[in-house]
Design a protein around this nucleic acid. Sequence first.
DNA 1: CGCTAAACGAGACGGTACGTCGGGTCTTAGT
DNA 2: ACTAAGACCCGACGTACCGTCTCGTTTAGCG
Lengths: 198, 198, 198, 198
Amino acid sequence: MSPEVKTPDPARRSERSRQAILRATRELVSEVGYAKLSIEAIATRAGVGKQTIYRWWRSKGAVVFDSFLALSEGADGMALPDTGDIAADLKAVLRATVAEFADPAFEAPIRALNLEIAGDPELAAQYRKKLAGPVDEAKKERLRSAQRAGQIAADADLDLALELLYAPLYQRWLLRSGPLTAAYADALVDHALRALRP
Amino acid sequence: MSPEVKTPDPARRSERSRQAILRATRELVSEVGYAKLSIEAIATRAGVGKQTIYRWWRSKGAVVFDSFLALSEGADGMALPDTGDIAADLKAVLRATVAEFADPAFEAPIRALNLEIAGDPELAAQYRKKLAGPVDEAKKERLRSAQRAGQIAADADLDLALELLYAPLYQRWLLRSGPLTAAYADALVDHALRALRP
Amino acid sequence: MSPEVKTPDPARRSERSRQAILRATRELVSEVGYAKLSIEAIATRAGVGKQTIYRWWRSKGAVVFDSFLALSEGADGMALPDTGDIAADLKAVLRATVAEFADPAFEAPIRALNLEIAGDPELAAQYRKKLAGPVDEAKKERLRSAQRAGQIAADADLDLALELLYAPLYQRWLLRSGPLTAAYADALVDHALRALRP
Amino acid sequence: MSPEVKTPDPARRSERSRQAILRATRELVSEVGYAKLSIEAIATRAGVGKQTIYRWWRSKGAVVFDSFLALSEGADGMALPDTGDIAADLKAVLRATVAEFADPAFEAPIRALNLEIAGDPELAAQYRKKLAGPVDEAKKERLRSAQRAGQIAADADLDLALELLYAPLYQRWLLRSGPLTAAYADALVDHALRALRP
DNA sequence: CGCTAAACGAGACGGTACGTCGGGTCTTAGT
DNA sequence: ACTAAGACCCGACGTACCGTCTCGTTTAGCG
């Protein structure tokens, strides 16, 4: 009668196994990289049956994604600094981003995550909702504050504004098409603000 | 002294096999996507032994990359239109790019190529040199013309200028984080040019 | 301490797969001969993954050997005829052996088995224990009966006796160094018995 | 019109290459065993193109066979000792054979040769003609001498006589079905001679 | 002595099979 | 009922050799 898709009962799910799987995934991504990551290895490392992974995640990417999601949980109240000087505040934030991208410990997993997202629309949607969304909202909040202070045009498209600020940085990093320096971060902010001036 | 890795002799290489492999790769990427592409399938489709692929390419990504490279060979003298109106010219170009990204026939292989490049620094270097480089140079040439016409600051950083124009578009497409429309292309050009004004 | 080689659990073994593999092996040895027999073909014919073969057998030879072993299982109570006339009884048996060797349907697989055994000491040991052993014991039993009847020296070395009877036959067959006829079988029995007379 | 099978001209054959191939084959059989011997390895070791091997030999077995043949060339005038005492003479010879079989340096190649012969009727014929034949003839000559001396029945079948003497030894060695000792050699001779007595 | 045709070394080629890895499914015990 | 364990079928991996097929390069006989 009904499609009868056997769905596992989340109530009975083992939290211990879930944590072990996410932890093992994070470790393995760091150790061997995303491309060489295997479900088999995750299961072994986590001391878990493969079926337990297949039961709760629909792909390797979903596990990797969740393993990142779990990290950023609780890190929510992420308002940006607001000293009243939008240029200075944005430069501080972008410099921090540049520094993060330069750290090899962050590099590998973040790259893995981005490749995963770029290749899977469904994960991309989840990514925007769960990870990028809240962060972007915090950034836009700071930009709105700048609008109220008359530093940015009142009718500016904030989505586009974020892209002007971050997309060049993102592209350079992803394709390794140029150096990521503090000076570059500053220049980006200067140009973007000029484009957004009232 | 030298690593002494036995390298095959390019002089003896079979051009027929090379072409068949690149062609088969292009077809298969379109048909099954990059993730499900296998060397085995390429070899079979091309009517070639697997060893012939392994002899000349160091990875699946390298084959895919070359298969794209082969397409764009000869398509060199790619100067951008120059009507004297930099805004109009750039809008035309970006609208065309948007249209390309919207075409599903282009989408899949280009995405495959980008994932490949993002994950392999060596391929990325080759990509910049062989594919992106010439195209970027043509774009910069148009910007220089605009500089001479006083439409863009004479001391503008052209690399950054290109990023302001293209990176937002690229990011939206890659992460599917927003709609790609002609209006968006126009808005990008307007903002970028405002940032680059003398 | 222990080598700690991960060993599969025989309790979980699929009897259905085991039978299919042995059956496919027997068929293929008959069809293409031992030299051209491949694990790949066995797996395909048996509808089984290659790994399932590699999990339970250490070599192609071991599979072939087991496929023969499986045939002769249950064929145990193989006492030789005992009419009281040792010469007549042995002649009957050797003539039957000659006939078997002459039958091309038996020829190929038995030759394959013998080559396998000759080349692999471990298989040879198993062969003696599981296949040759019981048969030889039955033959010796008949010889003991002849000893009791005074037709053979009471202190005769029965291992050597068997070799005198069978080794010439075996050698002629294996190296194709002469014709295998009923007359030859009779002559062998006559000579061997003369050598073993009390 | 004619079959037109391109046959190489033996006159132009490179003796240097032939020797190098036979030598390399002998070495490799000793080092890696017959089963793991490859034409590719022989060619490399001999510093010879693969085609040169395929031009002059029709199979791996043929090369191996020839490499043995080359060794025994010149070792022709191989008359057996004849002290007048056939039992003593045969025991000396069989003891020597036992010793040869026990020497691991002889073991591997001789076994390789025997497997090859057992599996290829054409090689077997060549073997009998070129290698076994002359040796057997020498042995028969000694037996004829014994016949003239009245130690062996005048009408004895000498082929069968040789088999009674050697086949048990051969079988024990090939199938590793029992110990090969001097005592065993003596026992064999005693039994065989009893069977052949006038 | 110089030509020429064959044998030669080298090694790329289309293939087959190897033995291994991992994917995703299914079964068996255990908690 | 969910889990750990792991056998199963399957597809692909990257490697080793197969036997064939060019490539220049010796080399040997003959003209």
